[in-house]
Amino acid sequence: MLPLCGHPRSGGLVTSRAYALLRYGGRLSPHAAFVWGTRAPSRVKFFCWLLVHRRINTRDALLRKTIVDRTGASCPVCSAELETADHLMFGCPFAREFWRAVGCVVITADTSVERLFALDVRAAVGDACLDTFVLLCCWHLWKHRNGVVFQAMVPSLDRFFERPAPETYVVDGYATFLCSIVVVNELGPDPVPASDLGDHLGRLLEDGNRTDDGMMMTTDVSLAVDGETFRAHRLVLAARSPVFKAMLFGSMMEATTTSSAPIVLHEITPAILGAMLRFMYTDAWPEDNEHVGHSSSIEMLQDLLAAADRYALDRLKLMCVRKLWDNMSIHTVVSILVYADTYGCAELKKKCLDFCARKENFKQVASTDGYPLFVLKFPSIFFELIEHKV
């Protein structure tokens, strides 16, 4: 290699001369971009570079070097004829069947490794990464051949296309995914900020309930609960809740009530109504509500769940279910089970039943203060619990 790539005086390697080897008579080799420009692993590129120049150790090469005799130079896969690079990749019946299996059916007697770059596999992979696909196919044919030669493997197409059983991906109920994240920091337009619509509507609700600067005049409906009044906007309430839409714009009695007369709501507390209105305006969990936002009170969460169900606020209802799920314990599971059954929360109910059915939990649950009352007031749920335990 040094006579071709070395410095004329010192004999050291000159990279410019090494790159010049990629060219034939001043023209770029057709194999250069095909092999080295792919996304295949480096060892695959190096193998295919040797392959297109017929420099891999097939048995015809070993025969020329007198490492094997004529009787030992036949193809190890099909044993039909002399093993050459062309035969191994395209002439062997096994190789032909392989290319047909991956969708490349145009394999003729003239197909050779020197024309590897012209192999048409668009029917198999489309127009993306064609060269990489061809190189990987050749690499796996070579690995399969070596398995037959050195490990006495039986030629098998199934080995190429077999998929591991699903249980090999899951260990103890968990699947691990390995991935890489590439963050491209490119200069460009200013990033689009997150939506602040909820913040604006939240301030609209707050301003509507202030009395110091006349902002309450922007509201057009009042809701009264236990002597407290909450001012709001009919269009917002109707857009967020079909129940309020029927109350304010439908045939229900409240629709005919003037905006100056408060609509009296029942079976809800002021704290729960305030939290529910905050959600309806912002579409977010009412974190700033002193009664609900950071509270783990099961009673407050249950009351908010009931209100969300009553006014058809499905997203708020699911939020309440999740927080009740997270706060489930020996002392709270019975009351949560009752609410889950009452308001049709099937997943939450199942989790409660599963929790109670555990042997180590059931005795403790049965010894809580509220359990006897639960058995008396909700016999159907109690019997369902017993059946689930059995």
Rank of each mutant, 00 (worst) to 15 (best):
E267P: 00
C356D: 02
K350E: 05
A308G: 09
A308M: 03
F382P: 00
S335W: 00
S10F: 12
E360G: 00
M153N: 14
V14W: 06
E299C: 10
L22I: 11
V149F: 12
L21E: 07
V134L: 00
F230K: 01
A61Y: 09
L63R: 12
M252I: 00
P8C: 01
S380A: 06
Y281K: 03
L178A: 07
C356A: 09
C92N: 15
F161T: 08
N185D: 10
F244L: 08
R210P: 00
G344N: 12
P242Q: 11
C352T: 01
V106P: 02
L304H: 00
R145L: 08
T211D: 15
L136H: 10
T258W: 03
F362E: 15
C5V: 14
R210M: 13
R231A: 01
D303F: 02
P30H: 09
M153A: 15
Y339F: 12
R70F: 04
G26M: 06
F230T: 00
L301I: 09
N185L: 15
N185K: 14
L116K: 06
A312Y: 05
M252C: 04
H31C: 07
R100M: 08
P155T: 08
D288L: 08
R23N: 09
L337C: 10
A18F: 12
K65C: 14
R163I: 14
M252L: 13
D172W: 06
F362Q: 14
V44K: 06
M328G: 00
